[in-house]
Simulated scan of single mutants.
Amino acid sequence: MAVNMKGKDLISIADLSLEEIYEIFDVAKSLKRKLYTGEEHHYLKGKTLGMIFSKPSTRTRISFETGIYQLGGYGMYFNQNDLQLGKSENIHDTAKVLSRYLDGIMIRTFSHQDVIDLAKYATIPVINGLTDLLHPCQVLSDLFTILEKRNKLQGLKLAYIGDGNNVAHSLLHGCSKVGMDIVVASPKGYEPKKEIVDNAIEIAKYMGSKVEIINDPFEAVKNADVVYTDVWASMGQEKEAEERRKVFKNYQVNLELIKHAKDDYLFMHCLPAHRGEEVIDEIIDSPNSIVFDEAENRLHVQKAIMVLIM
């Protein structure tokens, strides 16, 4: 391994160097090949990963639990009722105790500050499995998938259509880090957070790439290599779902919109998809769609992260 990441937390892609990102991709590629060829790869034999879920998830739980098992380790699942985290025991004490039992922690929760605090007080690596602010493991998997399909990242254009949410934030960090142009098209009032955008613009300067935040989805997808979307109402926003359907109705990825992208565009979605809302069946089921490759690669990339930091 060319880059030593042992003991490092993975909270945000913005914290990773370009070398560390490509080291994750190289290890993921190797682990994927080993899995496909049936070669044993028990790099984490005897290691235990604690998995804390304040937000339920299909892909995050299964990919991490399967991943640690395939690496020869053991995954322990905790829902919000299993731990006293932030209730009768503060994060400081919980982090110290878990550090005595486990070799790594993956947490998927609402508050980004909880992940920062957990990492601050834990003496073992902490992986951000998702917060309301960021979704780094998803976007590292997305970039790895694009790299597989296009053999490069720098110089490509990604258009993200929809809510300026945690996925959009991590895409801004990720694309700017690897030198991809990114255009985010969101309705007024639903754009990504300014501090994330400003951070991405600063990072992009070093790579010579562009970061744009606009309101016009048709302008965004013009000549795009990759078109990415996500649900209009994320977990915890169910009460806003009806209002958001009205606000986002012109942000659907459909046949009219997609014809402005490159002919060989790649369609991506972090899933689960609300078919007929943010994307139509004809797009998500088309030959251009790589959503299930993207979902599979969560397993390989997260295994790489665990190997490198644990």
Results as ranks from 00 to 15, higher is better:
H92R: 15
V3C: 03
T131S: 13
Y101C: 05
C175S: 14
E191R: 08
E39L: 06
L35K: 15
L98D: 03
L271Q: 08
M235Q: 06
L102S: 02
H274W: 04
M76D: 03
S17A: 00
A261P: 00
P272Y: 08
S234Y: 06
R33I: 15
A122I: 08
A200H: 05
P287K: 10
N128Y: 04
N79P: 02
R150A: 07
V231R: 09
K34Y: 14
N297D: 03
Y206H: 09
K6M: 08
T66N: 11
I182L: 12
F78P: 02
D198I: 04
I21L: 07
R245I: 00
L266H: 04
K149E: 14
V3N: 02
I305C: 09
K32T: 06
S286Y: 07
I201E: 14
L16K: 10
I305S: 10
M1L: 05
P187T: 10
H42C: 02
V167I: 15
Q70C: 00
G104V: 00
F292E: 05
K210C: 05
M76Q: 11
A28K: 08
N250F: 04
V27C: 11
F78S: 13
K29M: 01
A14V: 07
N166A: 12
V226K: 09
S111W: 01
L153K: 04
V184E: 01
L71M: 13
R33T: 14
F292R: 00
E65R: 00
L16R: 08
G72S: 11
A2T: 14
S57F: 11
Y22W: 13
V139E: 13
E191A: 12
E242A: 11
K55F: 09
D285E: 14
R298G: 02
K239S: 13
H300W: 13
I105Q: 11
P192W: 05
T145Y: 03
S111F: 03
V97Q: 02
K205G: 01
S17C: 01
K222S: 10
K239P: 03
A304M: 07
K152Q: 13
I91L: 12
V279H: 01
Y36H: 07
Q302E: 14
M76P: 00
N79G: 15
G276E: 03
